[in-house]
Structure formats: structure tokens, C-alpha cells
Amino acid sequence: MADNLFEIQDLCLCIGNKPIFSGINLNIPKNQTTAIIGPSGCGKSSFLSCLNLLITHISKYRLVGKICWNNNKINDNNDLDMHSFRRKVGTVFQQPMPFPTTIRKNLSIPLRQHFRLKRSEENDRIESVLKEVGLWEEIRHRIDHSANDLSGGQKQRLCLARALILNPDVMLMDEPCSALDPISTQTVEALIQKLKSKLTTVIVTHNLQQAKRLADHIVVFWFDVQSGGYIIESGSSEKLFSSPEEDITRSYLRGALG
């Protein structure tokens, strides 16, 4: 199955004694957009941080099961080169938090970590990625100023840019628009649409309309007190929104869609 980027088998996560989610089986197809929806606290963010292995920084986590990336098991794999793996897995968090330094350094720090480039090449890369996220015209004159002075939407696009500049294979986005106003949301969404053709995207969102607009596949997480989160239903976007199989999904979609 070469066309799945991630294959997840029987994945369970506990933090301390608390089960966060269990029994997750999921394939994430290449070059398509997968949206994860579900109520708050059902483990969507935790699931994303398993995919980029950031979960390993939490103390007392226990991950059982198998996560395969291009058919290689990545969890509990000591041979995995974490730095180059994370280069290929871009992550965008809910809160846009660029590094507290200049806009240029936000992009050049990750770039220099992974590539050896000449100054001019580096500047070209920075310029082209800023153009890609639609920031170039807005900030070209203050690229050496602090990134903290940007607006929320601009910060989030900068965070997208600093992941994109590394040429990732997949972008994991955890509610990338939830801290943004409608107009910035639109800009970021348009950007995600544009990226769709060339990379795999996994996006967690509470905005079902957004999931509908962006995603090819939908994964619905649900929650039960004993075992934590689990996947109640998944499938293609049209099918899931038009005729969900489970009653819970139907009422969740109806409730949230209004």
C-alpha cells in the first residue's frame, strides 16, 4: 500500500494511568487532505502529536500499537533519524507562536538546521515561501523586524511558512484557524487549498464547514469515559456528510451544523 503516508494500527495512548485514546486504526492517504473532527477532549491533538512523535516529550506517556510512515514503523524505533523525520512532517499549532526573533530568523533557523545554502539561495527560499503564504508583499519591508509585531493571521501564516520552507511531505495542523478572525481564516484556508495538490494534510478542526470545504476524508473521533477517545466513523467527505452510518455522527453533524 504505497499510497498511504501513515498507517496506524491499534494505537493506544495513556498518559499516567489515564487512557487518552485507544484502538485507533487509520490510514492517511498520500497527497490528500484528511480532517479530524470530534468533540473537545477526545484526543485529537494528542493523536496529532503521536504522528510527529512530539508526544515523546511528555513524561509518563505510554504508546502501544504501531504507527507506520512510508511503511516504516516510527514509534519505538531507535534507528529513526528524528531530525530528518520531523523535517518531513510539518506541524502547525493552534496558537500561532513564531519564535521571539525576527521574521527572517524564524525562517532561516529551521532552514540552516537542515540545509547548507548560500546566502543568496537562502534569501530566495525565504522570499518564495513568503510569497507562497501570501506574506511577502505585506512584510517585505520589515523582514528584519520582530515577528511578535505581526497580526494573528500573519503569525499563523509565518508558522505555516517556517514549516513549508523545509519542503515537508505532510502538514499536521491542529485547529490552525481557531485563533484567527474570519478574514485571516479565509486566507489560511485558501493557502491550505493551494497546498492540497502537492502535499498530504491532516487537519484538526471544530469547524465542520471548514472540514467540508477542505477535506477529502473525514475522521470522526468520539469519547467514552472508560477507554478515552476512539474513532467512531471515517470515510470520504461526501459520504460522511451526506449519509453517516452512525447515529452519534449524524446528531453531532446535525447539532454542529445547526
Partner: peptide, 9 residues
């Protein structure tokens, strides 16, 4: 974590 996610050492 933002730095870790970018694969920074």
C-alpha cells in the same frame, strides 16, 4: 515544541 516540530536540534 515548535522548534522540536521543525526538527531543530
Amino acid at each position: 515544541s515548535g522548534g522540536e516540530a521543525l526538527g531543530l536540534s
